[in-house]
Write a protein that binds this DNA or RNA. Structure first.
Lengths: 215, 215
DNA sequence: CGTTGTGAAAGGGTTCACAGCT
DNA sequence: AGCTGTGAACCCTTTCACAACG
């Protein structure tokens, strides 16, 4: 009974922003390593990134004790630990669904492969594109999503299809056993609770900017 | 003295997420208007968007009283009000700096013009692209940023240049009088405090997804 | 001595609950 | 009767401050 209470209490612990910041730490650590930095304190790291040192330490403390008191954090060790936390140690199999302008741009984006993401397939429903080589990837028909995702054991899907098709292709991806979706279509996707969906709404970002630009 | 206390207390009032949600409300209201819906309650709107009705009301209450008690919100009126809040009534002059894959994709993205964003210029430093027509826009050299931004009275800049060039072109845009920047390069831009910078880090989004995909 | 790791305090955002209108 | 608008309560995140430790 006490265990149950504990379980309920524990439910949500780690702030989502902590995960975002882990990403930022990782990128900076890689950069520092290249520059030859071997050890860094939470204070220095925080200063570079424009945040508080206590934030850095608290974020890391959710996952373990990675530092040395009086010294700081070993850059190589910490970056390795964060890679592990983010589940990127062994790389991740990704597909892109929708080879329009945005999908093609993302397929060509170096930033993904740099962090261990492995684009295994790209899809489109346009007969002109199907079978062609787009940005170095063979373009499969959308109808093949289930087969290819299963065969290639793809875990993450990037959705860059028009609004109207988003839910349908999301369904296919989910049926094929996808674990998470990065959705660029401005719709709330309906998926099982165990599937993670993150939304990126570019028009929304611009609208926000407009608000803060004032007048 | 009391005024000073009041000023300090007032510092930050409206949550940033409220602005994001305003965007979502607006999009849905436009959709509802097309479908012929004239009035909607905070409860219905919240249900459609998967949130709490009190959230909708609280968000709107930061800006005024737009509803009718016992009835709900008039769709046409509310969407108009939100457009005004977001500063999009009269449209916004935008430029895109960096006509690589991502910049070109954004130039072609319908979602921007749909919400009153007016792309007035696109820039690149690649001589092959300069002077050409890209996605319907004349491509200016990066060296012309200051002149063109000023002449066209451009307010918002979308930055899609490589990491190394981001700060330099941001400086040019700021000098030209830009008000806000949507930055796709994974660097913390150094700009005067009165310039708003929003960052979109696509690799970070994928890393977050990886974390939540588990294992 | 300097920096981590962490409870406790502070700060902010979300949800509740109900008074106030229509 | 029904729904908005809002102060207060609640809950989550950030920051503080310091004990623990190399």
């Amino acid at each position: 009974m006490l265990l149950l209470v504990k379980y309920i209490t524990m439910k949500k612990q780690i702030p989502e922003n902590t995960i975002n910041r882990l990403s930022a730490y990782y990128r900076m650590l890689i950069y520092l390593a290249q520059r030859g930095t071997q050890v860094i304190s939470s204070k220095s790291l925080a200063n570079i990134l424009g945040m508080k040192d206590s934030q850095v330490r608290k974020d890391l403390s959710y996952f373990g004790r990675f530092g040395v008191r009086g010294e700081g954090y070993k850059v190589a060790l910490l970056s390795q630990k964060i890679l592990h936390i983010l589940g990127l140690e062994k790389g991740r199999r990704v597909c892109i669904i929708g080879m329009g302008n945005l999908g093609s741009a993302l397929a060509a984006y170096k930033g993904f492969s740099d962090f261990g993401f492995d684009i295994r397939a790209v899809f489109d429903s346009n007969p002109v594109k199907i079978g062609k080589n787009i940005r170095g990837y063979h373009c499969y028909p959308a109808a093949e999503i289930k087969n290819v995702v299963k065969k290639e054991r793809i875990e993450l899907a990037i959705l860059t299809v028009p609004l109207e098709q988003a839910q349908a292709v999301a369904n296919l991806a989910v049926e094929a056993g996808i674990k998470a979706i990065l959705n660029f279509a401005p719709v709330r996707l309906n998926v099982p609770r165990n599937i993670r969906v993150d939304n990126v709404d570019l028009a929304m970002e611009l609208k926000k900017l407009s608000y803060f630009a004032g007048k």
